[in-house]
Amino acid sequence: MVTPVLTIVVPCYNEEEVLPETVFQLSGVLDALIQDQLISNESTLLLVDDGSRDATWELIERFHTTNTFVTGLKLARNAGHQSALLAGLMKAKEHADCVVSIDADLQDDVDAIREFVMKYHEGYDIVYGVRQDRSADTFFKRATAQGFYKLMTRMGVNIHYNHADFRLMSRRTLEKLEHFQEVNLFLRGMVPLLGYPSTKVYFTRKERFAGESKYPLRKMLAFAFDGITSFSVTPIRFVTTMGFLLFALSVVAALYAIIGKIMGATVTGWTSLILSVWFIGGVQLLALGLIGEYIGKIYKEVKRRPLYIIEKEVTAENRELAVQKPSKTAWSK
């Protein structure tokens, strides 16, 4: 059996509190897979610093000199989670046969990576990590998450329920993903479009090991809206349908107002106010805002600005300190 080269890509933004434990656990996973001859000993851990303001990059450089698994990319600015993840994926595909993406907070089960690799050996190009359930979430978070996935499905977006960005992808899928030139990234919607053989691995999500979530409610709502408007024109069609319905209601309201006017049962000015403000004004503002969102996305697309700029990188080739690969128990936290 040919052992593939595996790279684990970890986007990092202000993760100095959790990063030592993340490196420790993921290095242990790589070491165990190598010992079991499931992956090559050339496999690596790629940490992508997404313009962090803390000591994240300094930690990456330190781990690079003491742990031969660790490589790193430093982006010149905070490009966002999706762009940082894409930067790591595109870099990893240069030497890896398969790539696993996982967040730095250790909420995704690192032990599931072994199952990912087993599925890869069975011939699957894409393996989705899917949450077993949401019993640990608060009622509000569970309800909003379920609503998000259901809404995306109804909008016509092909997305896997309870799957975020914890997945394995083969090199050939990453090479095809590179052909997607969207500036407005929504990877969990883009990957299913590739169409290669795929499967799912279920896991139980854990509590964040340390630090604070980088996705508060405001960012989660913005991310959901970006996903919908990047993959579906259904909202525009909904506005059109709503416009016809409100036009019909306006006709009914107009007849009611005219009858009231004839019978003398209206206050002066009420007719024009109710028709112009309640119906037309609200619909126009909603429609203009939604159309403006789509125009804004078109504006970003046609400018073709780079999604990220790599400022620094530390790789196996430019390692400053050559050390022998330590045992699992030797990795310093």
Rank of each mutant, 00 (worst) to 15 (best):
A32Q: 15
D36K: 15
Q37W: 07
K300C: 10
A248S: 14
P216V: 10
K261W: 12
I39R: 02
L6A: 04
D97L: 09
N78M: 08
I298Q: 06
R142G: 09
L285T: 09
L38A: 04
A265G: 13
E16Q: 15
K200E: 15
I113V: 15
T266R: 13
T68F: 03
V5L: 07
W270C: 06
E311P: 03
E301A: 13
R114Q: 09
K261H: 12
K328M: 12
R304C: 10
T7G: 05
L89D: 01
V183R: 15
L321G: 00
A257D: 11
M190P: 00
L168S: 01
L273Q: 12
F116W: 00
V48L: 05
M242G: 04
M220I: 13
T240N: 10
T3A: 13
R319G: 05
Q82A: 14
L46A: 04
S332I: 14
A87P: 01
M220C: 09
A136Q: 11
R154S: 07
E293I: 15
F69L: 08
G88M: 03
I295N: 02
A112V: 03
V18F: 06
S250K: 06
Q132A: 11
A265L: 14
V18D: 03
L321C: 09
L6F: 02
F24G: 05
V252T: 09
E293H: 14
P197A: 04
E94C: 03
C98Q: 05
D133H: 15
V314G: 03
E311R: 07
S213V: 09
A104D: 14
D133F: 07
F203E: 00
T153V: 08
L33C: 07
Y256V: 12
I113D: 02
I258H: 12
A248K: 09
L47E: 01
F116E: 01
G269V: 08
V127W: 03
T266F: 07
S170H: 02
S101F: 02
K312F: 08
L38H: 06
F244G: 05
D54W: 01
T268M: 10
A96R: 00
L249S: 12
V157P: 01
L321V: 15
I39H: 02
L19H: 01
E311A: 14
A253S: 11
